[in-house]
Design a protein around this nucleic acid. Structure first.
Ligand code: MN
Ligand code: MN
Ligand code: ZN
Ligand code: ZN
Lengths: 147, 147
DNA sequence: ACGGTTAATGCTACAATGTTGCATTAACCG
DNA sequence: CGGTTAATGCAACATTGTAGCATTAACCGT
């Protein structure tokens, strides 16, 4: 009997009290395996590659559920499409970087927008979203290459 | 002959080299008259109130054109709908505040997200978007009122 | 003021993204 | 293993935004 991996997808899902289904496990593992955030199409493509059956609506609901449970977090890109990444935002709000060249959205865990600004009187902020736009490190290296 | 008001909507539009049409004038004046940002439906409703004929697509193109010309700026809310406000972003990127209670999006001209953070090596940011979420000053005053 | 040129508009159809309702399946529990 | 019900699959719909193309009207020169 292997030691129980308390950080495995199935284990995390079970800890939320929800049912541990093939779809939830597969989707969460896909998010965990990806260094960058993924939109619905990205996840669907990976599910298909794994030979997993998948319904468009179920995927929406699964991703929303993972966010609700704090197992993933979501950010809305300038293409008005949601992108997802494993790991919640317990109290650690972090900035994101949207590369205009390759379209990828990366997490900048080191940058915390909260507690950095003082708002005008009366405003009661609960969270802050900070998104940079420009050229990512990868695309900056091979400059001129039109990804 | 009245002194030429160089900040009037018609004058600003003419200065861009584009044709000065009823729609462009009306839309820009609507944006100029509003203290908060407006989405397409907001603008359409005001056009209708003014008895102006308006087509959905024309409104999209008009607003996009105003942004292109630097006469308005756009921000994408968490409801993935674009909101517009008069005035461009010449070099003055400013933060925005999205009220979770009333849904309004306000400009925080005093807060400039750029030149505030140092990104990891390799990243080349060109602009930064900073959006706070919470309760706005108006909604904070009449707390408990469920707008 | 008039007519020609063409940018801007109106209209239709379409695309992308996300939601709702409901019947069916399968995860869990005893 | 069988019953309960959360999760899924499916179809239809909603919202937001685009593309193509015929028509209108803003502008310019006369
Ligand atoms: Mn992130
Ligand atoms: Mn603004
Ligand atoms: Zn890139
Ligand atoms: Zn408010």
């Amino acid at each position: 009997m292997p030691a129980p991996d308390t950080s495995s997808a199935a284990h995390l899902i079970a800890a939320c009290g929800g049912r541990v289904t093939r779809t939830r496990i597969a989707v969460l593992e896909i998010l965990q395996d990806s260094p960058r955030s993924l939109n619905h199409d990205d996840v669907a493509a990976r599910l298909a590659a794994d030979g997993m059956p998948h319904d468009r609506v179920t995927l929406y609901r699964t991703l929303d559920w993972l966010v609700e449970q704090g197992l993933a977090h979501r950010i809305i890109g300038p293409d008005r499409a949601r992108r997802f990444k494993a790991g919640g935002e317990p109290r650690s709000q972090h900035a994101h970087f949207h590369c205009d060249r390759c379209g990828h959205v990366l997490c900048l865990e080191s940058i915390r927008p909260d507690e950095q600004f003082t708002l005008p009187a009366g405003y009661q902020p609960e969270r802050a979203e900070l998104v940079f736009h420009g050229t990512c490190a990868d695309c900056g290296r091979q400059r001129g290459a039109k990804v």
